[in-house]
Design a binder for these strands. Structure first.
Length: 277
DNA sequence: AGCGGGACCTGTGGGC
DNA sequence: TGCCCACAGGTCCCGC
């Protein structure tokens, strides 16, 4: 589910609700939701949330640790397909996998729910050292909104389709199925093109398209297909602006040709076979 | 090494 | 109406 714009929206909507709060208790209700490299969640008790950030598709709570030896200074969430972070409200689906009790500034009690229907999502309490041992984190590609437009080109190698390269979080962080298709359409690049065969000018156009699409999606609060809501339970609006995602068989808004749907790397892909070269 | 396909889960929607 | 299958925003692992 959530790709960069959705995770960014979750982080932004969560921050003002939990900044400065202290963990008073943690109730893990579904043990597999914990990442295998996570520190035990009870070590969070006493820690204060200093800020909420995002890296790729990860929500990151930056903590002032409790003072215990090896206490975590980071709490990460990967929402995968159906994960949600909600404050003071159990989600509509109510598949709460972990409940965090908080004492917010002023002394009031508050609750942070990690809700996740399909249970693919992961929770990870970490120190900077333990985080560095996580391969996914250490190999995570650059942040697209911080990249120079020419910085994508040297990262595109091999014969695999450009669509697959964009979904690989080592190429670039935070792109998922929706924004890969939308960005390739905007840049007029065929998703089947071998990544290593793009011209430098095409790679630059693609990087600019990615940045434009991501910014527009963040402005709309992300895309809600079925599950996604932000940390206040609010749906996104960018699903109403899709040019290709979910539009197989419909006419291309640019040239009128019928949009084609096929599988690339096991993922549904929609593109215009006429104006995406 | 790089790539494709299946696995991991639950829920929903379309076709019959 | 109801059943069954395909499919869903993401990684991870196994084989070739």
């Amino acid at each position: 589910m959530p790709e960069l714009p959705e995770v960014e929206t979750v982080a932004r909507s969560l921050a003002p609700q939990v900044r400065g709060a202290v963990f008073t208790a943690v109730d893990l209700r579904h043990a597999p939701s914990m990442h295998s490299l996570s520190l035990p969640l009870h070590t969070l008790v006493g820690a204060q949330i200093e800020d909420v950030a995002r890296r790729g598709k990860l929500v990151i709570l930056k903590l002032n640790p409790s003072g215990l030896p090896t206490a975590p200074s980071l709490l990460l969430f990967h929402l995968r397909m159906t994960g949600r972070l909600l404050v003071n409200t159990e989600g509509q689906g109510s598949h709460c996998r972990c409940l965090f009790n908080l004492r917010v500034p002023g002394g009031r009690e508050s609750q942070l729910f990690f809700d996740d229907t399909r249970t693919f999502g992961k929770i990870m309490a970490a120190t900077p050292e333990s985080l560095a041992a996580w391969g996914f984190w250490s190999k995570l590609g650059p942040e697209p909104l911080e990249m120079d437009p020419d910085a994508l080109f040297p990262r595109l190698k091999g014969k695999r389709p450009i669509k697959s390269a964009l979904l690989d979080q080592e190429t670039i962080a935070g792109i998922g199925n929706i924004y890969a298709d939308e960005s390739l359409f905007r840049a007029k690049i065929n998703p089947l093109r071998p990544a290593g065969e793009l011209e430098a000018s095409e790679s630059r156009a693609l990087m600019l398209a990615i940045q434009e699409i991501l910014k527009m999606a963040i402005d709309k609060g992300g895309s809600s297909i079925r599950d996604y809501v932000d940390a206040r339970g609010k749906s996104g609006g960018f699903q109403n602006s899709f040019a290709v995602y979910g539009r197989g068989g419909q006419p291309c808004a640019r040239c009128g040709a019928s949009l084609q749907k096929l599988k690339i790397g096991g993922r549904a892909t929609v593109f215009c076979p006429v104006c995406q070269k």
